[in-house]
């Protein structure tokens, strides 16, 4: 995490200094600056192989989590939008008590935020001992609560645990 912030600042400063000089060899627009920024970040990430192995392993997992999250967000939106437009309600709302494996405050916040934004679920409350998270789920197939719990546990919680372990 610290390494990522350091690399981010270094890449940003380098890009800013390069594009603030007087006569540029390449045009100044969003594509070139983004490409240069990402290029410097990738070079720094490759260099982390020699002094910070865990950062080198974790960055692809973070990108994987981000892409999976965006995909789930899009699919959930299409599902809910379809239910709103058609007159019949397909939803079976259920309250679920999800036992948490994650421990620290940062992980719980991350998990609750991701759950609120993805497949038809809304995090309502955390019990005071931080062991159970209450969810309001819209789509529960055939009253099968365990299936949804397993889906969240193996989809998001596993990825977050891999990231912060």
């Amino acid at each position: 995490m610290k390494t990522f912030v350091f690399h981010f600042i270094v890449a940003f400063t380098a890009t800013y200094l390069f594009f603030s000089q007087a006569d540029l060899p390449i045009p100044y627009n969003a594509e070139t600056t983004t490409a240069m920024f990402l290029g410097i970040l990738t070079l720094l990430w490759l260099s982390a192989l020699f002094y910070n192995k865990s950062y080198f392993r974790k960055l692809p997992k973070a990108i994987n989590l981000l892409l999976y999250f965006l995909k789930e967000l899009f699919l959930a939106n299409i599902k809910v939008a379809f239910d709103i437009v058609t007159p019949h309600y397909y939803m079976r709302p259920t309250i679920i008590a999800l036992p948490l494996t994650v421990k620290s405050d940062l992980e719980i916040t991350l998990l609750a935020n991701i759950i609120t934004l993805t497949p038809g679920t809304l995090s309502i409350d955390v019990r005071k001992d931080k062991k159970i998270l209450f969810l309001h789920a819209l789509y529960v197939k055939d009253d099968d609560i365990e299936q949804l719990k397993n889906y969240i546990k193996h989809g998001f919680e596993r990825r977050i645990l891999e990231l912060t372990a």
């Binding site: 967000l73 899009f74 939106n77 809910v80 939803m91 809304l122 309001h136 819209l138």
Partner: peptide
């Protein structure tokens, strides 16, 4: 939508995206 919680969970996703 019929209920406050359902409205809430539909709105948050739709607006953010």
């Amino acid at each position: 939508l019929p209920d406050f919680y359902i409205r809430m969970s539909a709105i948050t996703k739709g607006t953010t995206l």
